[in-house]
């Protein structure tokens, strides 16, 4: 769901060790990279390395059918052109129910068929969904290894709150990191020190830095990145001057990392 805000479709690259996804948004400003290791799944099997090209907008709509207690099983057969999702309620209070349809989800603008509403209403039961797989050229080159000058670690809920609040006030934000202070400031068209609305940084913030960094970013993207906050208690902001920002959420068996190109003065 976090990825679908940034990219509409992408390849899930599956191998024996993990599932990975890397895709750039249409405007080539942000890139999202996700990895979920095999131990992160209750059971995991991959007989053959294969890319699963998925319309993320469609996938997100289907995932909305799931409740927290549902176990979701994803399957793709060899040479298959559908991704098969099965939701199974942990407690089978109701008698087993099977629901299946082929949904050609590539046309995201098309409305759901009426029976989709029926499917939602019957949860938590047993639902079987298929999503068409599309072939898409993957981004073959991985993001180059970068040594960052600063790393700021803070509670993800605080980062979410800061960027959300500041997005109400402006379109851009400047992030400055010095030895003891992280300053996240809203920028106005004619910014001056007096015009900036500084947000206080809460406790639990760790700053690691080699040199002072000051970069400006589009808040819209940071707000979208922060939607991954529920995946991890902490978020790391890795920055160097004139280098894309890395916003990293690490969880037990994987990560979601978002890269954002800075804004620069003319």
């Amino acid at each position: 769901k976090s990825c679908s805000i940034l990219v509409t479709d992408a390849n899930f690259e599956c191998n024996e060790e993990n599932i990975m996804l890397q895709a750039m948004d249409n405007s080539h400003i942000a890139l999202v990279s996700v990895e979920i290791g095999a131990p992160g799944f209750t059971s995991y099997r991959c007989d053959r390395t294969m890319p699963l090209g998925v319309d993320l907008t469609s996938l997100t709509k289907v995932l909305r059918c799931a409740k927290d207690e549902n176990i979701c099983t994803l399957k793709a057969a060899d040479e298959a052109d559908v991704l098969n999702l099965v939701y199974d309620a942990k407690s089978a209070f109701f008698s087993p129910f099977f629901f299946a349809f082929m949904w050609h989800g590539r046309d995201a603008s098309s409305p759901f068929p009426p029976f989709f509403l029926l499917c939602s209403a019957l949860l938590p039961l047993f639902i079987h969904l298929n999503i068409s797989l599309s072939s898409q050229t993957p981004i073959t080159s991985s993001w180059p290894e970068t040594k960052y000058d600063t790393r700021v670690t803070l509670p993800s809920a605080e980062f979410t709150r800061i960027v959300r609040d500041l997005s109400q006030l402006g379109e851009h934000v400047r992030i400055e990191v010095s030895k003891e202070v992280v300053r996240i400031s809203k920028l106005k068209a004619k910014s001056s020190a007096e015009d900036e609305d500084n947000d206080s940084i809460p406790t639990g913030v760790v700053i690691e830095m080699n040199q002072h960094v000051s970069l400006t970013f589009s808040l819209k993207y940071l707000v979208n990145f922060s939607k991954s906050g529920s995946l991890s208690g902490e978020v790391q902001l890795l920055m160097s001057n004139d280098v894309p920002l890395l916003v990293a959420y690490d969880f037990t068996q994987g990560y979601i990392r978002c890269y954002l190109a800075p804004k620069i003065g003319d």
Partner: peptide
């Protein structure tokens, strides 16, 4: 005036 850089410009830097 701020100008949005694209990620591809950083890719090309290698």
């Amino acid at each position: 005036q701020l100008k949005q850089k694209s990620l591809t410009s950083f890719f090309s830097k290698g």
